[in-house]
Amino acid sequence: MGAATVALALAVALAQAASRLLAKAAENWPLLIVIGLALATCLACLRIRRSHRNRADSERLARLRITLAELDAMDDQQFEYALRDLLVRDGWVATKVGRGGDQAADVIGDLVPLGRIVVQAKHTRVGGKVGSSVMYEVNGTAGPAHRADHAVVVTNGSFTRDAMAWGDRHGVHWIDRDRLGQWAHKGRALHELLGLPSRRSRLPWRRAA
């Protein structure tokens, strides 16, 4: 009985407190309306500011141009972020994923209707060359590990003849210093530069035997 009495008393007290709060709210409804309008105005201002910031970021990326000298001066991580920003400029939804165990993918981008692209970045000293082993690695992981429709290796240096020939033969695209200049500095879209198809293609690693 003691516990029931305490519970009943608590319930009555809560009800009385709620009643008092409602009465105060009724008395002060003009103030509550003013507060509500102020909060709504603040939220609207925040949304407008965020929209303006996003638009400014989009416009900045749309004008993005990076010279070869600027790319040469970057470290590996900065180079990967630059390639991500260039993909975003071209309309791709791109993410930098390069890290230990990245399975030959430094940047991954998606763009309807082109599908998914995997970018392997090879930042090197000027005059450095990328060999065929990189092509083998990208070819082995782009489809099975990343479900990619297109794969490309990008360097600020150059490729060996064997690497370019092997990539052309097996569907692994390559961007050497000259092509990188057209993409990054002159503003040509990567998918136009590479001639990527306007629909999802079936790469050699995804074709049925």
Rank of each mutant, 00 (worst) to 15 (best):
G101A: 03
L87K: 04
R84F: 01
A26R: 14
D57W: 08
S132V: 15
R125W: 04
S158F: 05
R188P: 07
T124A: 10
A104C: 10
M135K: 04
R63N: 09
I175A: 02
V153R: 00
A94H: 03
W183C: 02
L194F: 06
E137C: 01
A44F: 07
A151S: 12
K129A: 14
S51L: 11
R49C: 13
A7F: 08
L31Y: 06
W166P: 00
G171Y: 00
V107D: 01
T5C: 07
R161K: 11
L194Q: 01
L46T: 14
T124D: 03
S133G: 09
L190V: 07
A165Q: 08
L8P: 05
D178I: 11
S133M: 08
A25P: 02
G131L: 02
E192M: 08
V134E: 15
L114M: 07
P204Q: 04
H191D: 06
R63V: 06
G167I: 00
S51R: 15
R53A: 15
M164I: 15
P30M: 05
W29C: 05
L68R: 13
V93F: 13
A18V: 15
E80I: 05
I33G: 03
R99A: 06
K129T: 15
R65M: 08
R188M: 12
V112P: 04
V134M: 05
P197Y: 08
L71Q: 00
L111I: 03
V12Y: 06
A163N: 05
D76I: 08
G167C: 03
D102L: 00
T155M: 09
H123C: 08
D106W: 00
V112N: 12
G195R: 08
R50D: 13
G195P: 03
L193H: 02
G171N: 01
I66W: 05
G157I: 07
M135F: 06
W29K: 15
D76K: 14
L64G: 02
G181H: 11
G101W: 01
